[in-house]
């Protein structure tokens, strides 16, 4: 299946700073691709170029084979959900969707049906005629997403759509994205929340300082980059910590044995945590473990490993 979105060699500089530097992204129909990065990494700039609202210094963006800057036909294939709300608060949700439907060239005779469907998709049918300023934050976020669904786009671009929403609304947004993906829509999704990416994304690209520094399926990235499972072992007699360290250091497949906070910590080199070997070796040495906690690595570990723990503004 061909890529619905194909962005190649995107570059954008603001003054001397290269906000986006040779970024390539491809998303196929029925696929969700995540773009992850810290603040100021270039996610929104990349999305803006993909949406055709920011001219790249170099590089190309094609949606369904059409150059995004070639005209209305290409933009009509794209639905953009911005991280800020693009709603008129003094009119109703239905009126907002009618407005955006007209802006997306939805034919007049199909407009009402498109509005009703979008409202149903985001669970706002019963509040459709209320003013938007009476909506909760989560409802406004869902309506903001509905704006991008009005014209059944082939490519859905979501820029941090779950910022500030409650778990119920977030779950509703996840289900909506999954339903559209299952319907064959290509989805490009940016987020700060790694659990969102792990749940939704078939592939992720991690962007920092304007460059995509890693990409792949979440599980593959975790296996390749997060460095195995962590074990946190408590023993009945804390005086035996030093002895436990020596025992654990001798087990093949483990690395990085440390002590601290009343426990011995060790990481496995692969996905196998070697629990049986750990327990057996400790018991053989006369050390009785009182508890073993497993800390399975996550995409967040990968993210922090790649982008560092220093604060970003």
């Amino acid at each position: 299946m061909g890529a619905v979105l194909e962005a190649r060699g995107l570059v954008k500089a603001f003054g001397a700073r290269r906000a986006v530097d040779e970024v390539d992204i491809a998303v196929e129909a029925g696929e969700v691709v995540g773009l992850l990065g810290p603040n100021g990494a270039g996610k929104t700039t990349t999305i803006s170029m993909i949406a055709g609202v920011l001219r790249p210094d170099s590089g190309t963006v094609h949606v369904d084979g059409l150059d995004i800057r070639s005209g209305p036909a290409a933009r009509a294939r794209l639905g953009l959900v911005t991280q800020w709300l693009t709603l008129y608060h003094d009119i109703s949700g239905r009126e907002n969707l009618e407005f955006w439907g007209r802006m997306h060239d939805v034919p007049r005779k199909r407009l009402r049906a498109a509005v009703d469907r979008a409202l149903a998709d985001v669970g706002l049918h019963d509040r459709a005629d209320d003013r938007v300023d009476t909506y909760s934050g989560g409802m406004q976020r869902r309506l903001n997403i509905a704006v991008a669904l009005m014209h059944d786009p082939a490519l859905l671009v979501l820029d941090e759509p779950c910022v500030g929403v409650d778990p119920q609304s977030r779950n509703a947004i996840f289900e909506l994205v999954e339903a559209r993906r299952d319907g064959g829509v290509a989805v490009l999704y940016t987020t700060h929340y790694m659990e969102e990416a792990e749940r939704l994304c078939d592939r992720v690209g991690i962007i920092d300082a304007g460059r995509v520094i890693e990409e792949g399926a979440p599980a593959e990235l975790i296996a390749r980059l997060a460095g195995g499972t962590s074990l946190r072992i408590r023993v009945t007699d804390p005086a035996e910590h030093e002895k436990a360290v020596k025992v654990l250091a001798g087990i093949k497949g483990l690395r990085g044995v440390t002590t601290g906070d009343g426990a011995v910590c060790v990481r496995s080199k692969g996905s196998d945590p070697h629990i049986a070997a750990v327990v057996a070796e400790l018991l053989d040495a006369g050390i009785t473990p009182s508890s073993i906690d497993l800390d399975t690595p996550s995409l967040e570990d990968v993210f922090l490993e790649l982008t560092g723990k220093a604060l970003r503004d």
Partner: peptide, 9 residues
Amino acid sequence: AFEIGDGAA
């Protein structure tokens, strides 16, 4: 105002 982006915004 028609442009958005990390730098433009």
